[in-house]
Amino acid sequence: MREEQTLIARWIRNGSRVLDLGCGNGALLAHLKSARGVSGYGIEIDSENIVRCLEAGVNVIQSDLDRGLSDFDDDSFDYVIMTQTLQATRYPDRLLREMLRVGREAIVTFPNFGHWKCRLQVLTGRMPVTRHLPNTWYNTANIHMCTVRDFEALCASEGLEILEREALDSAHRTTAAMRLLPNLLAEIALYRFRRR
């Protein structure tokens, strides 16, 4: 997680205004506050996580992302970030549009379903269960899994311009091979994008 935070922090300008969707325990926002001097809010639905955010001194708004971002005005953030959450939302396409309505740029990370381990398990006739996706099909929160190619196809059809991409393994390391063949070798994908 820390490597993912460092990577995201590298993409973010100092002093910007940030909205973190599904902010978990607030660690990313706390990191961005200290490393980049950002201001902003986390959105989280889980009460335990909200208490952890308050502990971390991070602004957190309890809200259900599936209800959209109607509490936020157009273009009110420099970045809208969503780490490891897109695949658990009910309407990922709508949410991406919402992210770029309220933010000038968006940053998304998600587990890549195109990774070779997932593909192998599907070939055996079973839904994948990996270290990064530890739940089975019936109890997973990840109801909208996608691959690197799926995500980029959606961006193309939504008219979104991908500014940066990073491919990582589950230990958040990257290699030249992973960058070359992200859909096969990346376990986690990071994107920074904006409206075209």
């Binding site: 909200i50 957190v60 005005d73």
Partner: peptide
């Protein structure tokens, strides 16, 4: 939020 103030919000069940 619109006024860019520091705020946290919790809805308790």
């Amino acid at each position: 939020l619109d006024a860019d103030r520091d705020v946290s919000y919790v809805e308790i069940e």
